[in-house]
Every structure is written in structure tokens, then in C-alpha cells.
Design a protein around this nucleic acid. Structure first.
Length: 139
DNA sequence: GCCAACGTTGGC
DNA sequence: GCCAACGTTGGC
């Protein structure tokens, strides 16, 4: 299983909205960046990811699971763009802020720190364990 | 609200 | 194929 990070502006699509979708999950649509799209093409059903709130909150707030492989993005006719579906698994006991990530030397190589603008990104096994631990959930 | 970083577009 | 111009994202 591989690990990922999904970034969203809470004003556009929030963790609460994601959780409200329950087991059905929801398309991670609207991505218009090739790198991010390519990562989604690499995903498999059952892969897990962090759900990150950008802008106002800047924190990892929960864990999601990929529940459908990459397919055409229903929000555009442009066939270049694809997306996966994800469903909420569980919220963090306490959010892990960007500050906390930046201040932990073990996480200095995280894409979240290195390339803050990429909206879908890979997370290493080690980073996954550390951030889950900080968030108060079992990896 | 500003600005740096980055990606994309289009002219040459 | 290069590069300048432009638009967008996201942290501060």
C-alpha cells in the first residue's frame, strides 16, 4: 500500500464535507496539474492519504482511502484530466499543523514542505507513521 | 493583501 | 525548443 496527501481549501471542499459523504466517497476533481494527475494515476484502491486543509488552517486533519482508481474528471470535457475517488477513514485526534511538520527535522523532506503548491503528493512510509503519531491515530 | 514560487502559454 | 509573460496557489 502507498501513501499520499490530498490538499484542499476548506472553503471549497472541507474535511467535514468529505466525512459527510461516508462510504460512498467523492471524486477528487478539479485537479489541473500534470504532476498531481500523474500521482493519481499511480494510486490503487486501498491506498491511504492525508487530508490537508490549506490557507486558513494549514493542517493535516484526517485520513482518507482511495476507493476508485483514476477515471475521467466529470467536471471537464478535457480528457487530459483524471481523478480518483476517496472516502474519509478517520479524523485526527488533533490536527497536525504545517508548523509542526516544518519544526520536525524528520519531516524536512516532505513534499508539503518542499513544494507547497503541489495539491496531490506522495508521502513516504516513515512520514506516514510520524504524522499519524503526531495526529494521535494509529498508522 | 502581498509576494514568492511555480506551471502554463504562446510568440519567435 | 527557448524564454518572456502571465496566471494561480498558498504561506506569511
Amino acid at each position: 500500500m502507498r501513501y499520499w496527501l490530498f490538499k484542499s481549501e476548506p472553503a471549497t471542499w472541507s474535511w467535514d464535507q468529505q466525512m459527510a459523504k461516508g462510504e460512498a466517497g467523492e471524486e477528487w476533481d478539479g485537479v489541473r496539474n500534470y504532476q498531481a494527475r500523474n500521482f493519481m494515476r499511480d494510486m490503487a484502491v486501498g491506498d491511504r492519504g492525508f487530508f490537508y486543509h490549506s490557507q486558513t488552517e494549514k493542517a493535516v486533519v484526517g485520513i482518507v482511502e482511495v476507493c476508485a482508481e483514476a477515471h475521467p474528471d466529470s467536471t471537464t470535457d478535457d480528457d487530459r484530466w483524471e481523478c480518483v475517488d476517496i472516502k474519509a477513514v478517520q479524523p485526527f485526534a488533533h490536527p497536525v499543523s504545517l508548523d509542526m511538520v516544518k519544526n520536525d527535522p524528520r519531516l524536512s523532506e516532505m513534499v508539503l514542505v518542499r513544494n507547497s503548491r503541489l495539491s496531490v503528493q506522495p508521502v513516504t512510509d516513515e512520514e506516514w507513521r510520524i504524522v499519524c503519531d503526531m495526529g494521535g491515530v494509529t498508522a
